[in-house]
Structures are given as C-alpha cells and as structure tokens.
Design a protein around this nucleic acid. Structure first.
Length: 346
DNA sequence: AATTCGGGGTT
DNA sequence: AACCCAGAATT
C-alpha cells in the first residue's frame, strides 16, 4: 500500500484547524514547536496565543525581560524551553539581524532545538525533506511495521528516522510530517486505539498480531523520588513578604518562590522554627509560626513527588527586602507556588 | 547511554 | 497508579 498517500488522505479529512497550521512564518512555527515539546496541543494552545499576542515579532521577544517571558510560560513546565527561546530570540535578532535560519543544519544549532524541532521548522517553513521523529511517529511506525527496537536509545532513533526519511522523499514534506504526527496523535493513540476504523488495519503488523499494546517498546523505568518542601511565607507589619529567585541548575531555574526549607523527612514544628530563625530575615524574638495546610500538598512531577507544607510567619516590624503583597502575583513561579498565592489571596 | 527537566490528560 | 505528550540538554 501507499503509506504516504494513505496518511495524507486521512490527514486532509481529519486534521484539526490549529493556528500554526495557517502560517509558514518561521517565528510562529518555531514558537509553536518549542511550546509543543512534550506538551499536548490542548495544553499548549493558549500559551501559543498568548505569546503571539504579547510578542508579535522575534524582536519583541528578544527585547523582553526573562522574568516576563517566564511569567507567560508559567504553568507550562520545562522552563528551560522558555529560557532557551528567549536566548535564541536575542541571538537571531542581534547576530542574524532578525533573519531566521533557513536550513535544518542551521536551525538545529539554536538552543532548545533538536532533531525533531529542526525537522519540523525546516519542512513546514522551507519545504526541506527532513522527517520528524516524535512520540506519535514512533508509535505509528513501530506498530505498522512491527518494529520492536526500543525507541529510548540512539539505535531506535536512527532506525525510525531512516524509515521516515525514506517515506518523505517522494511527497510534500510539510504535509507528510503534519499527517504522520496527527495520525499518531488522533488515530494511532497510545491506549485503546479504534483499529476498526483505521485505514492501515489490514497492513498493520501489530494489529494483525494483536500486539498493538506492546508497541512501541520503551526501556526506561523512571524512579520517583520523594522530597519534603517547607515554604516560609513571612508576613510583615507593613504588608510585605519575602520572595526569592531560585538559583543554580536544578528544577524551576530562575523562577521565584518563598524561602524554602527542604528536609529529608516530613518536618515538624520545632525543626522548621529553628530553620526559620536561621534565615536571618526576622528577629527571632518577634516571630510567630503556624502551619497553613494541615495535610501535605503533594505536587507530582515526572521524577519527584514534592510533599509540601506552607508555613506562615508573622513578624513585628518590617522587611528591608520585602515584596508588597500586591506584587506577589506578578512573579513567575512554579504552579505549586502559584496555586498557593491564588488560594492565600494576599 | 542514562538522567534531568513540568504539568496535565487519559486510561 | 501508570503512561504519555509535536524532546532537548546535561551528565
């Protein structure tokens, strides 16, 4: 059968009308592809709209403060995408005079752009025949051809890239890449796909062998760590609190938070009280400590579960570095903090 | 090659 | 609870 034609015919009938499909402007396509990395369309769509509206051109994005970019990104996760997006915008605006690179090999040099994103931009904007390999493509190809090579290693990537690249050679690359991804996302779904209405069912190896649920093969077993976070929300006499920017390389880099005390196990009142006094923000004689949430808020991330307590510290006196309550919601924060701020209602 | 990086949706 | 998402950078 003609796989490419079948995919494209299916796509023409079933495709969603998405804003980045109505343009070939590389800035818009780039923006959408960064947002959609490891992110479902429904979740990314409002962020795309927001970014296009706030930063209509790459120069607007380049001129923005990083904190403003992170604020717009708040809640989407994988914040290095936002930082790299901003860095690359500044690079293109200043070093390349605002002209977006036009080939796969140039595009992939941008920070935050790997093989998938470079292939997407090069094909969608410049009609270059570079096949995209994402989770959808892995799933469809592994099932259709019955390929059990794990997709989690370099060997798997090379094998599937070669297959997809061979398929794209004879067709319109933009339409093909869109079609194969949309097919994987909407028809060849991870769980319980409706193979009775699939145009490939008679030729699909996995379907014929009843092994749809075995493919694609992934080897990684991710282990989830438990962490215990204690956020210290200080309330001063003149209605300010302490908000800090996260430093270092780990999670939520450059986002803001209340002073954090991390413990090895669930913290008790005495432990936190001692740690709060060591923070040096407040005179130890004047503070009052109370636990805000009686049961831990469990914030679940891919690799860690954060058992979180918010502690309220009221102090007599003022905070030299204090942030006025009404400014607290303007900082870019992880959604764990954002939910607290919304609930606490400073 | 293995690990890290978010948050939300689906089953 | 497990799995997945229009992956990339770091170790």
């Amino acid at each position: 059968m003609n796989i490419q034609k079948t995919l494209i015919d299916w796509y023409i009938v079933n495709k969603r009308d998405l804003p980045w499909r109505n343009t070939t402007d590389p800035y818009s396509i780039w923006l959408s592809e960064i947002i959609l990395q490891q992110t479902q369309v429904a979740q990314g769509l409002p962020y795309y709209t927001s970014f296009v509206s706030n930063y209509p051109t790459i120069f607007d994005l380049a001129d923005a403060d990083e904190s403003d970019v992170l604020k717009l990104w708040q809640g989407l996760g994988y914040y290095s995408r936002a930082r790299n997006l901003h860095t690359s915008a500044q690079y293109i605006a200043t070093e390349l005079n605002g002209v977006f690179p036009k080939t796969f090999s140039e595009i992939i040099k941008l920070k935050g752009v790997g093989d998938y994103t470079a292939s997407a931009i090069a094909s969608f904007c410049y009609n270059e025949k570079t096949a995209v390999i994402d989770g959808n493509v892995y799933r469809f190809l592994s099932r259709f051809y019955g390929i059990y090579t794990p997709i989690t290693g370099g060997k798997g990537f090379k094998e599937f890239k070669a297959i997809a690249q061979n398929l794209i050679e004879t067709v319109d690359p933009a339409t093909f890449n869109q079609a194969i991804m949309e097919f994987g996302a909407r028809q060849c779904k991870p769980k319980t796909p409706d193979c009775t209405v699939c145009p490939f069912s008679s030729d699909c190896v996995a379907f014929q062998k009843e092994e749809i649920n075995c493919l694609p093969v992934k080897l990684k077993a991710l282990k989830v760590k438990k962490k215990f976070f204690n956020y210290i929300v200080i309330l001063s006499e003149d209605n300010t609190t302490i908000v800090e920017q996260r430093q270092g390389k780990g999670i939520w880099q450059n986002l803001y938070q209340f002073p954090l005390i991390e413990t090895d196990t669930a913290a008790n009142y005495e432990t936190v009280l001692k740690a709060v006094k060591a923070l040096n923000y407040v005179e130890s004689e004047t503070l009052e400590l109370s636990l805000y949430n009686t049961t831990d808020i469990v914030h679940k991330l891919s690799h860690q579960h954060l058992y979180t307590k918010f502690w309220i510290v009221t102090v007599n006196g003022t905070l030299p570095e204090g942030v006025p309550f009404n400014k607290v919601p303007t900082f870019p924060v992880p959604i764990l903090i954002g939910n607290f701020i919304e609930n606490f209602n400073f």
